[in-house]
């Protein structure tokens, strides 16, 4: 391995270039998000588990319990039930249970819904000490609590 003086000078110059670049980074703002104190806003197309869309007029769900989502779901994780109430034209939902442990977030249910009653939530930091918490996410109860 022979070094000409030219190579040594060039090599040293490249080291200085590297140091100039790191010093440039040193004075740029940091990019860390201090997670527990602040968190990133999820993009609009983020797919969390599905939730009901609230009807702006009635404040209730738009779901008509047609069970199209139940049929469309490839992993059978949706169970829907509904009744026809007196004086109303359409059925309304009484029961909508999602087994989130089986859901693959494919979005078939959102796509197939005739009344656009389902949407993806932005909830990404779901955590629990037991799996059972996600066996049965009750969307009807969730909408009432909000």
């Amino acid at each position: 391995m022979k070094h000409s003086p030219r190579q040594i000078i060039d090599g040293f110059w490249s080291l200085l270039t590297g140091m100039r670049i790191t010093l440039g980074q040193f004075f740029k703002p940091t990019v860390t998000v201090q997670y527990p104190h602040e968190s990133l806003k999820m993009p609009t197309r983020f797919r969390g588990h599905i939730v009901f869309v609230r009807d702006p007029e009635t404040g209730k769900s738009l779901c008509i319990a047609c069970k199209a989502c139940e049929k469309a779901c490839p992993s059978d994780c949706i169970v829907v039930d509904g009744i026809k109430r007196e004086g109303e034209k359409r059925k309304s939902v009484t029961d909508f249970k999602l087994d989130f442990t089986k859901c693959s977030l494919c979005g078939s249910c959102v796509e197939v819904c005739p009344t656009d009653a389902l949407e993806f939530s932005r909830a990404y930091n779901l955590a629990s000490v037991s799996k059972e918490q996600f066996h049965c996410i009750d969307l009807v109860k969730r909408l009432e609590q909000e």
Partner: peptide, 13 residues
């Protein structure tokens, strides 16, 4: 702290 700044992190906070 320096290592953090050189890598655009914040270091201990």
């Amino acid at each position: 702290k320096g290592a953090g700044r050189f890598q655009r992190r914040t270091g201990p906070t």
